[in-house]
Nucleic acid binder design. Structure first.
Lengths: 129, 129
DNA sequence: TCAGTGTACTTTGCATTGGAAAGCTGATGC
DNA sequence: GCATCAGCTTTCCAATGCAAAGTACACTGA
C-alpha cells in the first residue's frame, strides 16, 4: 500500500550548528595528530618518527596510516634503509588541501563555540522549569 | 647495555602532537554541535530545537544526549508542555567548564596545525628518497 | 650455525560507537 | 473508536579505535 514514508525525519532548513565540514577521516584525535605532524614536516616522515611524535602504538599507527592512505590524504612508501625496512609517509597535495580546508572549519567551530561559551558564562544556573 | 637509538634526526620532545586533551565525548561532530548550541543558549533547549539546530535525527539526538548526560555534561529534564511531552536540556556547570577546557585544547590544535600547514605550503612535492 | 633478542611493522580480536530504521506511548483528528 | 501524528527510545548493524598477538627479517653471542 503506497503511503508516505512514516519515518521522514529530514533535517530541514538551516542547521547552524551542524558542522558538516568536519570530515570524519580527519576529525579524529590520532589522525589529526598525524596530519599535523606531516604538515609540519615537508620531508617524508618515518614510521618510527610518527609513532613518537604522535604518541601512538605500532598497531594504531599502522591502522590510521592505512585509513589516511585509503582516503588519498597521504602517500606511503615502503622501502629499505640498508637492510632494514623503512616506511615513510608524506601528505599528498590533495591531502594538504583537504587538511587546510578542514582546519578552516575547525577554526570556525572554535570561534563559534568560544563565543557561545562566553555568552553564557556568568549566568547563574538557570532554574529547571 | 644497549646503545641509545641510533636515529635521532628529528628533535622529538615527548609526543608534541599527541592531543590528549581531546576528550572523545566532546570531540565528536554531533556532540560538539550540541554542546555549542547549548553553550550559546543559557536557557534550556527543547529536544526539537536541538534537533533542528544540529541537523540531527531523533534517534541520533536521543543517543548523543544520553552520552552527554552520562558524562555529566548536560542535564536533561523530561516534563510536559500542556499534555505533550517536552524534553529540555542544558549544560551543567561542570559541563560548561569541561567544554571550555576542551575548546582551549582545540584552539591550540588549530593554531599548531595551521602553522604547520603554512610552513610546508609552497613546497614542491618532495621526491621520494 | 643457530638460539635469542631486537626492530619494524601487520594482523587479529574485541568491545564500543554512530547512525538508520523500527518501536513505543499517549494525544489528537475523523 | 480507529487511524494518524508528535515526541521521543530502542534496536540493529556496519564501522571504528585500540591492544595484544603475530610475522618477518637482522644482528649478536656462544
Amino acid at each position: 500500500m503506497p503511503e508516505p514514508a512514516p519515518f521522514a525525519q529530514v533535517p530541514l532548513g538551516q542547521a547552524p550548528f551542524a558542522y558538516d565540514g568536519l570530515d570524519r577521516v580527519m576529525h579524529e584525535r590520532a589522525r589529526l595528530s598525524l596530519l599535523t605532524s606531516l604538515a609540519a614536516h615537508p620531508k617524508p616522515l618515518a614510521f618510527a618518527d610518527l609513532k613518537q611524535l604522535c604518541g601512538l602504538t605500532d598497531g594504531n599507527l599502522s591502522r590510521h596510516l592505512g585509513v589516511l592512505e585509503e582516503a588519498g590524504l597521504v602517500e606511503i612508501h615502503k622501502g629499505y634503509e640498508g637492510r632494514r625496512p623503512l616506511t615513510t609517509c608524506r601528505l599528498t597535495q590533495a591531502g594538504r588541501e583537504r587538511f587546510v580546508a578542514y582546519l578552516a572549519v575547525l577554526e570556525r567551530v572554535v570561534r563559534d563555540a568560544a563565543e557561545a561559551a562566553r555568552q553564557g558564562e556568568g549566568e547563574p544556573t538557570p532554574r529547571p522549569a
